[in-house]
């Protein structure tokens, strides 16, 4: 056997150089945002943003943490929506996916089509908006953030494919012992499917954590604003921070004293930063979600 050395192509170093440049290109925007947040407002005003902090200081963070209630509340809402939404979603979808994987389920084909059709055609934004706001009256409740998108047809298919790969003999032997389908599902199918459940939970969880659109549509109440929507508000209204902090007695009413440029980026770092250290640990599950097959049996 000839052992092929993969690193030999034009010295391997060219390849690695290109890959290092790509990795850097992926990282630089992160570095810039962090650098701005650590710069001094006066330096930014004079010399503009830079790749490295200009006049290193923590004033922006001090300002944010002087009044942390808003960002803490947003963290709380995002956490509740992510955890509750993902738990409900995975529970409901895995029950349905299990049934779809069982050959003795009479409505298997019909139910599969019923779910699959939603991937091909949808009512779109307007009827959904009217349904949620005018008919279900969920606006300005946490349910407006949890319920839309709770069932994802693609994730149901992904779970079903996994359940189908479990040996049927396992189910049958438990059945002979008198267990019903729900018991088989909870005692046999679920414990054996943790990788698939983790994949779906993480994909859904990432989507919920990063969701701001449902809040844009349905939330006006400040106490229900999730993290990403808080950031959206800060960006869409560049005066937002200044206005917000202007009401505070301990600061001068002169809004130009507030480090709004650096503070905006500090908010961005505080809001998005922590999860950037969490998600990479689950990378293999995100990757797995991409490489599963089609809807076909």
């Amino acid at each position: 056997m000839v052992k092929v050395k993969r690193s030999e192509m034009f010295g391997g170093s060219v390849i690695n150089l290109l890959l290092i440049l790509t990795a850097l290109a992926c990282l630089i925007p992160f570095v810039i945002v962090i650098s701005i947040s650590l710069s001094s407002e006066a330096e930014i005003a004079a010399r503009g943003y830079g790749l490295l902090p200009r006049g290193w200081n923590l004033t922006a963070y001090r300002y944010v943490f002087k009044k942390p209630e808003q960002i803490l509340q947003a963290y709380k809402i995002s956490a509740i929506v992510t955890v509750a939404g993902t738990a409900l979603s995975v529970f409901a979808m895995s029950m349905a996916a299990y049934c779809l994987a069982r050959k003795n389920f009479r409505f298997r084909k019909a139910f599969m089509f019923y779910i699959f059709f939603t991937m091909l055609f949808s009512g779109g934004l307007v009827p959904t908006y009217i349904l949620v706001s005018s008919y279900l009256r969920l606006s300005n409740t946490i349910w407006a953030l949890i319920l839309p998108g709770l069932v994802n047809a693609f994730h149901v298919v992904l779970l079903r494919t996994f359940f189908q790969k479990l040996p049927p003999a396992l189910f049958e032997s438990t059945k002979i012992d008198g267990a019903n389908e729900f018991v088989i599902f909870t005692r046999i199918a679920l414990p054996l499917s943790t990788p698939a459940l983790a994949t779906v939970a993480l994909l859904g969880g990432l989507g919920r954590w990063n969701d701001w659109f449902n809040a844009l549509l349905y939330i006006n109440t400040d106490s229900l604003v999730p993290l990403q929507y808080l950031l959206y508000r800060i960006m869409s209204n560049l005066q937002f921070i200044a206005m917000n902090y202007n009401t505070m007695p301990e600061f001068a009413r002169d809004t130009s004293a507030i480090p709004s440029e650096t503070m905006r980026m500090a908010m961005c770092v505080i809001a998005a930063g922590p999860m950037m250290f969490v998600f990479p640990f689950f990378q293999k599950y995100f990757v797995k979600g991409l490489t599963v097959g089609s809807v076909k049996e």
Binding site: L19, T22, A23, C26, L27, P29, F30, I32, V33, I36, Y49, L206, W209, N210, D211, W212, Q228, Y229, L231, Y232, M235, R264, M265, C268, A271, A272, M275, M276, F279, P280, Q283, F286
Partner: peptide, 22 residues
């Protein structure tokens, strides 16, 4: 390499909007 190049995928478009603005 993979870990670094996947990192942007975890961001929301809101945050990418901040970066674009920078």
């Amino acid at each position: 390499y993979q870990t670094f190049i996947i990192l942007p995928s975890y961001l929301s478009w809101v945050v990418v909007g901040f970066m674009t603005y920078a």
